[in-house]
Design a protein around this nucleic acid. Sequence first.
DNA 1: AATCTTTATCGTAATATTGCAATATTAAAA
DNA 2: TTTTAATATTGCAATATTACGATAAAGATT
Lengths: 110, 110
Amino acid sequence: MGASKSEHFTEKQNQIATLAKALGHPARVAIIEYLLKVDTCICGDIVNELPLAQPTVSQHLRELKSAGLIKGSIEGNAICYCIEESTLDVFKQFFNHVEFGLDEKKKRCC
Amino acid sequence: MGASKSEHFTEKQNQIATLAKALGHPARVAIIEYLLKVDTCICGDIVNELPLAQPTVSQHLRELKSAGLIKGSIEGNAICYCIEESTLDVFKQFFNHVEFGLDEKKKRCC
DNA sequence: AATCTTTATCGTAATATTGCAATATTAAAA
DNA sequence: TTTTAATATTGCAATATTACGATAAAGATT
């Protein structure tokens, strides 16, 4: 196979999995961290920063974008990529949910 | 290719990517949520809960385990799987770091 | 010991991801 | 308008992931 049976899971579960998957590559983690660190956010800078060829970086950017973790706006003939905060919030909320669940669970088991 | 060039990234970046990847499948998100919800944490229950065959679930459990997100302890001839809280904390810390970076960045750009 | 229950592993097919060279696209600059 | 610069897309090879039937392993039960 290789295709995950996403139709059997809840929308929320799929959403979290999609976000996690988008972060599931060191290059994409590096891109997020780089976008946080620098004052500019032009794609070319990212290409120079990462030890990967330009098409590969472009592909990673596209995946982050399609997951909604970043957004890109055209800035002349360059592109300015920025972090999409609201999407990160979804992720953060999941962890809060997990943390709350853990606290509750500790009263009962394990 | 298909193999990620993890040697080019920092240990932290690889760590976050590994954790995110482990969560990057709806079945594994569902397992985590199930472990939070129920009072017991027996593998067989997870198999019954998920719409996947037993070997597939076992494989997903192994991935969560090897990423350190859960741990399993033998309980008679069954196995009790539990969430590994300290690993989730690493993840949470990353999001705090990102959130802080976002706040700082907003003073400067985008 | 023979059997049952529970979980893991093996083998394998289908599909997805990663990476990059080559090329296309698009807007600025000359 | 030709050229240059910045990104994206295409095509393809290498590898990884997902899923499951068959089977193994290991402890419980009879």
